[in-house]
């Protein structure tokens, strides 16, 4: 089903509680993907993936794939709030 853009711009906010920096915030178009927001947020928080773990974005508790569009998550809302999650190794 084609996505209907309800807003021209959507505010995204990414929180990461162990950073010295405040949340990452940006206004994006609805067709912007989670992957783009993730990359930008990682740059903001100065973190990188390595062999031990990867970073992902969670929205409404669930991990979201890189190809998911912000518009599909926003629905009627003008904002989308993510948590940056460090997926770490298990023992």
């Amino acid at each position: 089903m084609p996505e209907t853009a309800r807003h021209d711009r959507i505010e995204v906010r990414v929180s990461f509680p162990i950073s010295k920096k405040g949340p990452y915030q940006a206004d994006v178009t609805p067709d912007t993907t989670v992957g783009v927001v993730l990359a930008d947020a990682m740059r903001h928080f100065e973190v990188q993936n390595d062999s031990q773990f990867t970073y992902v974005l969670a929205f409404d508790g669930l991990e979201r794939g890189d190809a998911t569009t912000i518009g599909s998550l926003a629905g009627d809302s003008e904002e989308v709030r993510f948590t940056l999650v460090k997926k770490i190794t298990q023992g």
Binding site: P17, A58, G61, L62, E63, T83, V85, K86, I88
Partner: peptide
């Protein structure tokens, strides 16, 4: 938040 993520995913 990490634990909640584990519970949710």
């Amino acid at each position: 938040e990490i634990m909640q993520f584990h519970f949710d995913n």
